[in-house]
Amino acid sequence: MNKRLVLLALLAAAILAYFWFDLGQYLSLDQFKAQQAEIIAAKDAAPALYIGGFFLLYVGVTALSLPGAAIMSLIAGALFGVVTGTILVSFASTIGATLAFLSSRFVLRDWVQGKFGDRLKAIDDGIARDGAFYLFTIRLIPLFPFFVVNLVMGLTRIPARTFYWVSQIGMLPATIVFVNAGTQIGAIDSTAGLMSPTLIGSFVLLGLFPWIARMLVAGAKKIRAH
């Protein structure tokens, strides 16, 4: 059987299983909060197992373009703290994004072209105009949904290695903000926790992030001009 068809069948089966068995319920913040104490206790008993399992799950969710990555970023903060959580999410999200990019380029090209062809021209024009800097810009400022960027970029001429390292750097600020917010969300056990300064600060950062990203992009453009 054609290798491309085999890969396509495996991707379809994985996505179907996700929705058929309603696996998304396990990636909800409410579900995590309901079992927070038990999950943290189990993580503390086997930290390496939980770190490895969380990493692989995050890679799988992003590689298959499934919903839940943002919630998992928050949960990473609650489970592992800012430093470990950020490292896990940064590498898992970038590896998963690159796998989605490669699947689009080599397996799902026709489907992606038909589904997101209207967005492809804008991204193609941006890559032609600014190269990798355009990808950096849309990673910092979400002009398009995360999964759409992964898939549509697979149809451009950008090399996979460039896609990887630009995505890793470009997504890092948002990753830090989300994971940091998650450290406080996981700690809330009463209404008093809703007013903690760190949590309020985390949500302020979430609100300000697009503006901060625009300033970073503008600064980077000035550096490139010189």
Rank of each mutant, 00 (worst) to 15 (best):
L64N: 02
P159R: 14
F55I: 06
V59P: 00
Y58R: 07
L57A: 07
V152G: 03
S28C: 03
T137D: 02
P159L: 08
T84Y: 07
K33T: 06
L99D: 03
A78V: 00
A63C: 06
F54A: 11
K43N: 09
Y50T: 01
Y134N: 12
V59T: 07
G81L: 11
T94I: 00
V82R: 15
G131E: 05
A100E: 02
R139T: 08
T94C: 09
F144R: 01
G96T: 01
Y50C: 10
A92E: 00
A69I: 01
G114I: 07
D118R: 14
G60H: 03
V61T: 07
Q35W: 15
L88M: 08
P159V: 13
L99R: 03
G96K: 02
L143V: 14
A34W: 07
S104G: 09
G52Y: 11
G85M: 09
G53A: 10
K121G: 04
Y134F: 15
L56W: 06
A128C: 11
P47H: 09
M72F: 05
G154T: 04
V152Y: 01
F163I: 05
A37V: 13
I95A: 12
F91D: 14
M153H: 01
G96I: 00
S104W: 02
A160K: 13
Q31G: 12
I95T: 10
T156K: 02
F133S: 08
R161S: 12
S104E: 08
L120V: 05
S65I: 09
D124F: 03
T137C: 09
L27E: 08
V107M: 10
D44W: 07
L56T: 02
L99Q: 03
G53T: 01
G68E: 03
A63V: 06
S103F: 00
V61M: 07
A41M: 10
A41Q: 13
I138C: 02
Y58F: 14
G68V: 11
S28I: 04
G52Q: 09
F144M: 06
T98S: 15
K33Q: 14
V107E: 04
L135Y: 01
G114R: 09
L120D: 10
F80R: 11
A46K: 05
T137K: 04
I75S: 04
P145I: 02
V148Y: 00
V89S: 13
L29Y: 07
L151E: 09
F146I: 11
F133D: 03
R129F: 02
L102P: 12
I158Y: 00
R109V: 00
Y58D: 15
A37T: 14
F91K: 10
L49A: 13
S93N: 10
L57C: 05
A160E: 12
L56Y: 04
A78F: 09
V112S: 06
L102G: 08
L79G: 06
K33R: 07
I158L: 08
P145M: 08
V148E: 02
V149I: 15
S90Y: 01
D124L: 07
W111T: 13
F80C: 12
A128M: 13
Q113T: 11
L88W: 01
L66A: 00
A132T: 03
A70F: 06
T94H: 05
A76D: 02
V82A: 14
F144T: 04
L99I: 15
G85K: 01
D118C: 06
P159I: 10
A132M: 05
R161M: 05
L29H: 03
